[in-house]
Write a protein that binds this DNA or RNA. Structure first.
Lengths: 165, 165
DNA sequence: TCTTGAGTTCAAAAAATATTGAACTGAGCC
DNA sequence: GGCTCAGTTCAATATTTTTTGAACTCAAGA
């Protein structure tokens, strides 16, 4: 497990950079893309030390990046046959459905949920408007946001399902 | 058109903040959320100066934010009945389908496209690997990314369609 | 042609975000 | 108990992103 080499070959760097760009779009830090990318192109599970050595990032970054990837379900611990090994090794999750599911659960759902409670508060504020016509206009706009959020909630499972194939 | 008031009421601020958080998730700058949010809750079209005054942002931010919103199709110029008006007024696009369409076109498609050419380059690099077994492993992984991207491309139009209702 | 003013540009400043690294924790071995 | 070492934490630092504001452009009116 792991790897003894001290540096990443050209193709490895190319893949790592690809994932750095990829996670950027998703609003995740570069270190997360580097770690996932390296894991993705590695034939064997890797440990925190492997990431530090091959990507030349700090232990802190590697630790935090791995935590996020674990949270997203993008990475799993390799089962440690070789019994007495203290170090933990990781493997990438490579099924798109799973990756997207984790992203939705960790990054999108929480926002939709907190959005929901904000909408409730907006409705209450709108009710306090004195002028009837202004109140109606504002209420209609809030209803529209509300509808947007419901639509989005409905679409997410479909997306996940479609990506499973 | 526009508004004479010098400051935003409490509900207005609430809505603006809601959109600031919203666009954040999409990776757009706060000023863009402020501008769109103000427009969204305004009964009349607004001009650049209105944004500067009510949101207390610089002319530069307002100009750049509007440019981005125009690019996304999230904002349109109000037609200027009152003939001789130099200033341009804006209205928000409020149909989710349209907003999502603009976002896909401007922010997602370009990444998928540039990703595609990177994949091509990766395939070429993989072909140069000497060791047959390593070459096969790497090629399989690249094929997997390739497949991810194709899946994503197929899903986008479906998403847009589903959000249209 | 000169003046006005709406809107743009972009280098510099400010703010937000990510990374570092040294101190710390805690599990396991002797 | 004391030592080792894998991994975590977090304040300080570095980097990136966003905003600012002053100079500029350009169209229209006088």
């Amino acid at each position: 497990m792991g790897t003894g080499t001290r540096e990443l070959d050209a193709l490895g760097r190319q893949v790592v950079d690809f994932f750095v760009d990829g996670v950027r779009v998703l609003g995740l830090p570069p270190s997360v893309g580097q770690i996932y990318g390296l894991l993705f192109i590695s034939r064997t599970p890797l440990s925190l030390d492997d990431f530090v050595r091959l990507l030349r990032i700090s232990k802190g970054s590697a630790s935090q990046g791995l935590r996020m990837l674990k949270g997203l379900g993008a990475v799993r611990e390799a089962d440690d046959h070789n019994g007495a090994e203290r170090r933990v090794y990781y493997e990438p999750a490579v099924e798109l459905k799973r990756l997207v599911g984790g992203f939705i659960r960790e990054q999108i759902r929480p926002h939709l949920d907190s959005g929901k409670s904000k909408i409730t508060r907006l409705y209450r504020s709108a009710d306090l408007i004195d002028d009837a016509s202004q109140r109606q206009f504002v209420t209609e706009r809030i209803e529209r946001i509300d509808h947007w959020m419901r639509s989005s909630s409905r679409v997410l499972p479909v997306v996940q399902k479609l990506l499973g194939k």
